[in-house]
Design a protein around this nucleic acid. Structure first.
Length: 441
RNA sequence: GGAGGCGUCGCAUAGUGGCCUAGUGCGCCCGCCUGCUAAGCGGGUUGGGGUUGAUUACCCCUCGCGGGUUCAAAUCCCGCCGCCUCCGCCA
């Protein structure tokens, strides 16, 4: 949810953001009108409610006087009773009116909220306009290996995984269906090593490691923004009305929901380790081979709560920490600035790091870091004491990937040798306990 | 799975239909007093929204959350969430 004050003060900025996202800028005017209706409706209700309260208080006094007279058999009992009854009747009329006005005000509020929910976060200046293909490449790091010059045809990650006894797709399908898999032997070791290296790096940079719930209540999923564009992506457990989270971002965003947190000592940085579940609806036939696109995987995710004015600098830091991880696995990659239309509603800017996958001859996303500014925190009601004075204000949230199961694809393919063995990148060696993965008999 | 209890301001607690504009204590903040500190004294101390150009000020909502009964709800009723106790079951 964006800040309605921004929309009131600078509607043009919101219109421009909507246009860049390829969404309806007209919703801005609809919101301004609905906001006007809500405020006048609320004013009417509150005025009458104030009157009703004072009248009702008089009823209390009249009733008191009457009861007292009745007890002491005073001569004016009948008059007092009549007065009390009359006052009560008048209060009853007012009460009905107030109820009607309250309903109207609440309906006007609902209408405004419904419109507000349709607006994505206001993009950060500089985000490219357009859709999925309109990203801007910010930097390319490293160069792809020339396998032709080395004299062999690279094997894809699944072929390597099977040679090494690291990946078993067939049995994954037998147990859980398509897009499920077993990591076995060195595959399991490699994933644990990667995730442990990510956690170690996070700790080194002051993050608090977290192991999070992977089921979340509806309000947390909605608050984190996963019921907008990703609604079809989320597994739902109907009997319990819980959702399987597609990333620990959900749990970490919900962690401080409805709290006023203290950021005076700097950002709160969490590194969440969790299994992630995605339905991959609508991607039938895409990436069906191997572990590139699967229903369940592991991820270490950075999640930060910080002051709104620090969010852009923090976003750069998250990107730097992602780059540090990518450097450790020694694969070529590029960084893209995602276009507005491909951001998803909570993000104001998103950088993806995409690693080179030799057998596909293209870059594939390994990390994604989003600056959600105050959008996510506003929905989840996460605030801080305003350092500039009285009151509270909404904090900013950001997230970014440190490692996922998909990274194994890039590691295996980029470090393979002609005989099907795979060299373990130096930084990863102490975590795996091996220098090289060799094919099994 | 069954039975019961509880949820009030940062913390502790009072409040069982109108005197609640939610009291009291602790903590915290401001001031006074005081060689210093402590004590003492006085004041302040939930959050959200609205009116106003802004300040002051005023108004509405907020006693876990959402409904309902009533002229009037912290208080009565219903649902949900959370915590606790006992029994059963599983490990």
């Amino acid at each position: 949810m964006i800040d309605i004050k921004v929309l009131r003060d600078d509607p043009e900025r919101v219109r421009a953001s909507q246009l860049a996202r390829g969404e309806d800028p007209g919703v801005v005017d609809a919101i301004l009108a609905a906001d006007e209706r809500r405020r006048s409706s609320l004013g009417e209700y509150e005025a009458l409610r104030a009157e009703q309260k004072s009248v009702s208080k008089n009823v209390g006094a009249a009733m008191g006087a009457f009861q007292k007279a009745k007890k002491s058999d005073a001569p004016d009992v009948a008059e007092l009773e009549a007065a009390a009854t009359a006052a009560r009747e008048r209060a009853a009329e007012l009460s009905d009116l107030v109820k009607a006005l309250e309903a109207a005000a609440s309906a006007a509020g609902d209408e405004l909220n419904a419109l507000m929910r349709r607006v994505g976060n206001v993009i950060v200046d500089g985000v490219p306009s357009g859709g999925e293909d309109d990203y801007v490449v910010l930097e390319t790091v490293g160069a792809p290996r020339d396998f032709a010059a080395e004299g062999f045809e690279p094997r894809d990650h699944l072929e390597l995984g099977e040679l090494l006894g690291a990946i078993d797709m067939e049995r994954g399908a037998k147990v859980a269906g398509a897009r499920f898999y077993f990591l076995t032997g060195v595959g399991a070791r490699l994933e644990l090593a990667l995730l442990n290296m990510a956690v170690a790096q996070a700790i080194e940079h002051g993050f608090t490691p977290m192991i999070t719930p992977t089921l979340a209540r509806p309000e947390v999923i909605v608050g984190a923004g996963f019921m907008d564009a990703h609604a079809e992506e989320v597994y739902h457990l109907e009997t319990d009305d819980l959702y399987l989270t597609g990333t620990s971002e959900v749990a970490l965003a919900g962690y401080h929901a409805d709290e006023i947190i203290d950021l005076s000592a700097g950002p709160r940085r969490y590194a969440g380790w969790s299994a992630c579940y995605r339905r991959e609806a609508g991607s039938h036939g895409k990436d069906t081979r191997g572990i590139i696109r699967v229903h369940q995987f592991q991820k270490v995710e950075m999640f930060v709560y910080c002051r709104p004015e620090d969010a852009e600098a923090e976003h750069q830091r998250l990107l730097d920490w992602e780059r540090e991880m990518l450097a450790k696995i020694e694969v070529p990659y590029r960084i893209i600035d995602t276009a507005a239309g491909d951001l998803g509603s909570p993000a104001a800017r998103k950088f993806d790091c995409e690693a080179w996958v030799p057998t596909q001859g293209r870059f594939r996303e390994l990390t994604s870091t989003s600056n959600c500014t105050t959008f996510q925190a506003r929905r989840l009601n996460i605030r801080e004491r305003d350092p500039r004075g009285a009151g509270t204000r909404t904090v900013a949230t950001l997230n970014g990937t440190l490692a996922t199961t998909r990274w194994l694809v890039a590691i295996l393919e980029n470090h393979q040798q002609a005989d099907g063995s795979v060299l373990v990148p130096k930084a990863l060696q102490p975590f795996v306990g091996l220098d090289v993965l060799t094919p099994v008999g």
